[in-house]
Design a protein around this nucleic acid. Sequence first.
DNA 1: GTCTATAGAAGGATAGAC
DNA 2: GTCTATCCTTCTATAGAC
Lengths: 224, 224
Amino acid sequence: MTEKDKQTEDKIFDAATEVFIEKGMDGARMQDIADRAGMNKSLLHYYYRSKDRLFNAVFEMIAMKMLKKFAPVFDANVLFEDKIRFFFREHISFLQKNPRLPAFLLNEINRNPSRIKQFMANIDIESFWMILFTQHKEELKKYHITRENIPQVMTILVAITVFPFAARGLLKEILAKQNLKFDDFLEDRKTFAADFVISALQNMHLSTAEDESKTKNHDEKKRT
Amino acid sequence: MTEKDKQTEDKIFDAATEVFIEKGMDGARMQDIADRAGMNKSLLHYYYRSKDRLFNAVFEMIAMKMLKKFAPVFDANVLFEDKIRFFFREHISFLQKNPRLPAFLLNEINRNPSRIKQFMANIDIESFWMILFTQHKEELKKYHITRENIPQVMTILVAITVFPFAARGLLKEILAKQNLKFDDFLEDRKTFAADFVISALQNMHLSTAEDESKTKNHDEKKRT
DNA sequence: GTCTATAGAAGGATAGAC
DNA sequence: GTCTATCCTTCTATAGAC
C-alpha cells in the first residue's frame, strides 16, 4: 500500500524535521525521532537507511524552503524601493513563523560545508544579478548600487533580517532586560529596516562626500 | 607542582577550545581533545571532572572574549561617527582572526539558552545605554537615535559585522561563484559598512518624509 | 599527576519473526 | 510494513597501578 507507505514516511520526515531543527544533526537521536513519530526506531532505517540520509533529506527541504522565500521578492514588477520594503516585511514574517530555521541552517552549513557546496551547485547567482540589473538599471544607478558593491548590499539586507533569529536566545535576553518583547521588536523591524536601508542607499554619496570635509581629526581613511 | 598543573590544565583548555569551536558541544569527543592536547583522556576528567564542566569553562571564556571586544569601542572620547567607523574596523579585524567564534556562540546559545541567561545576569545593559546617551546627547539627536529605536540600530550594527562570519560557509561559496574572495569582501566591508550606516542615520528623516509624498501606489504603510 | 584498563551506558544499525 | 531482540561500536567516566 503506497498510501500507507507515504503516510509513515511523511510522519518520519516531519518528526525528524522537528528534532533535527531542535537538536541539530549531532544532538538528535534516532530514538527521539521515532518517539515523536510514534513508531518503532527500526522503521526509520527501513525508510531512510541511515541517520545521515534522513538528515540530508530534511536539510535539503529546509534549504530549499528558505531559498524559495528569497526568490519571489525580486520577481514582481514594482519599484526597487518597494521591493526592499516587500522583502523586509515578507521575510521577517516568514521567519516569525519559522524562527529556528536560520540558526539550524547556519550551524549545519558551518559544521559540514560540503553539504552546501553541492546544494549551491545548482543555483545560478550570476543570472540573478543580471535580472536585477536589467530590471532596475536606472534605479540602481540612483542608489549607487554597482556590480562591485552588490554583495555588500545584499549581505546587509539578509544580515538585518536573519541575524536577530540566529541570535534569538541572546537578543531575547537583552530585550527582556529593557522590558521589551522579541515579537514587538520584529514588528518594528519590518518598517524600520526598510527605512534604514533606503535611507542609506539614497544618501551614501552625501555621507562620504560630506564626511571628507567634515571630519578633520579623522585620519582613519583608507591610505593608498 | 602547581607550575606543572597549570601547564597541563592550560593544554587541555586550549585543545578543548579548538575542538569545541570546530565540532560544537555535541560533536566534540573527549578523545579528540586528549589527542590534540597530546595526553591521556583520563586527565581531562582529573582536571575538569566532566565534559560538561570543561565545555562551560571554554564557553564562558569565549563569551567573555567577545563581550570585551564590544566594550572599548564605546569608551574613547571621540565623535559618535568615528566610533561607528572604529567599531566596524576593529570588530571585523577581530573576527578575521577568530572567524569561527560567532557561529560557535550563536549555535551553543540556541542549543542551550540557559547558559547565556546566567552569563547575561552579570551584565548591565541599562547603564551601557545611559553612558551612550550622556556621552553623545546632541549627536544622537542629530542621528535620530532614541531610546526606542536603539535596539534596532545596535542590532543592525552587530548583524552587519557578525552575520558574514556566522554564514561564512555559505557566503564563501556565493562569493566564489563571482570570483570574489571572502577576505577581500571583509576588507571592503570595514569601510563600506561604516559609510552605509552613517548615511542611513544621517538621512532617515529624509527618507521617510520623502517616501510619504513620493510613493503614491504605496499602500503598505502601517495602518492604525 | 599520569597512565592502563575497563566499567557502564547509549546510540546506530540489522536480523528475523509476524 | 512493522515490531522485538540484539549486535557492535562509540563515548563518558572511573578504578587502580605506578
